[in-house]
Computed example of a mutant assay.
Amino acid sequence: MSPTQEDDHEATKLATLLTTDIRTVLPPQPTGAILSQRPFVSIPGLFNLRDLSTPQDDGPPAIRPGFIYRSGALTHITPAGKTALVDTLHLGTIFDLRRPEERERAPSPDIPGVETIWTPYAFTPMPVNPRDFAGPDGGVSGFVKMYVAVLECAEPAFKAVFQQIRDHPERPILVHCSAGKDRTGVIAALIEKLAGYSDDAIVYDYLLTRIGIEPARPALLGFLRGQVGAPVPEEMPGLVELCGVQAAAMRGFLKVLDETFEEGVVGYLTIRLGFSDEDVEVIRRNLAHYSEDQVSNPTR
């Protein structure tokens, strides 16, 4: 097999994994190998943890490595995992995007030296209806509807994340919800879009969640049932689709973002979150670069 054929073969295997039904157990290999390399990060007790930095074909990563991470809930983090977050990732701040009842069931862990920030939603979102994900489009319209709702109700939390990026470029951050899939997927897409990622790159990062959640896959159904607001049978139409990831869902959300706000994500930051054009440029710069001068001579 030639190098080109081998690359094509590996790409095909990866594509198969990314589109595998959530009910299907992924094979230990190559799943394990993928989880052991960038952008995934292995920390004891965490799942779906990865660095948002992605190498670009024509230059350095649009988001600097080791600055912004995304993951699922930290509920089962071990003492060794807490140490690794501080000593290995040099984490400064964790943003918890979960609802109050989720945090009550599984409180955020206390990690010495790391600040955990939780910001109440702007309003209480309507419970997710699994039947929204059972339509002929495979649930795409349901995901877009849900992601637009997240964009609105999580405005205070998203503003806090972007303020942190603006004001503290020296402090690596981690953003998470329960599965690290939907709410985390929305804020990750906003950050990546602002950094200049192509829609293809954003969709790819979103799809990697299918592999990232595999270690916690049996519990994922329970995580997402919490969004429904009432006990539902596993065979309920749309529930399987709700637990999965689809490229068309993220593409649909990005399309709505661009159609709703002039300049897309920039419009969202300035119109909805209240940032100035100068703020947006500082955030962009901090995503890509950091120097000691930014701390010793802050812009604000």
Rank of each mutant, 00 (worst) to 15 (best):
I191G: 01
P127S: 13
T12Y: 10
V245Q: 15
L207K: 03
I34H: 04
P156W: 14
D96F: 03
Q227R: 08
S42E: 07
H76A: 13
F143C: 10
A15I: 04
T260V: 08
G142T: 01
E241K: 10
H289N: 10
R64W: 02
Q246T: 05
C177D: 04
I94F: 01
R50H: 14
G92D: 11
A195V: 04
S296N: 07
T12V: 09
T31G: 05
L46N: 06
S108I: 06
Q164M: 06
R23A: 14
A201G: 03
E259L: 12
V256H: 11
D87K: 14
V150E: 03
T31L: 08
E115P: 00
F95K: 07
T20F: 12
T78S: 11
A157K: 03
A188D: 02
K159H: 11
L35I: 06
G267A: 12
L26K: 13
P30N: 15
A230Q: 15
I173A: 04
H9V: 07
N286R: 08
A134L: 13
G180E: 05
P298S: 05
N48F: 00
P28G: 13
S42G: 09
F133Y: 10
G238V: 11
V266H: 06
G264P: 07
L239F: 15
W118L: 01
G32H: 11
R183W: 02
G244S: 15
P172E: 12
P125C: 14
E6Y: 06
G252W: 07
E115C: 03
K82I: 00
P298G: 05
V144K: 06
P231E: 15
V161L: 00
A80L: 13
T88N: 07
P39C: 07
L97T: 04
H9G: 00
G135Q: 13
V265D: 09
A154V: 01
E214A: 13
V232M: 03
S141H: 06
Q5L: 05
T75D: 00
R99F: 13
T124R: 14
N129Q: 15
A219F: 12
F223S: 05
D51S: 07
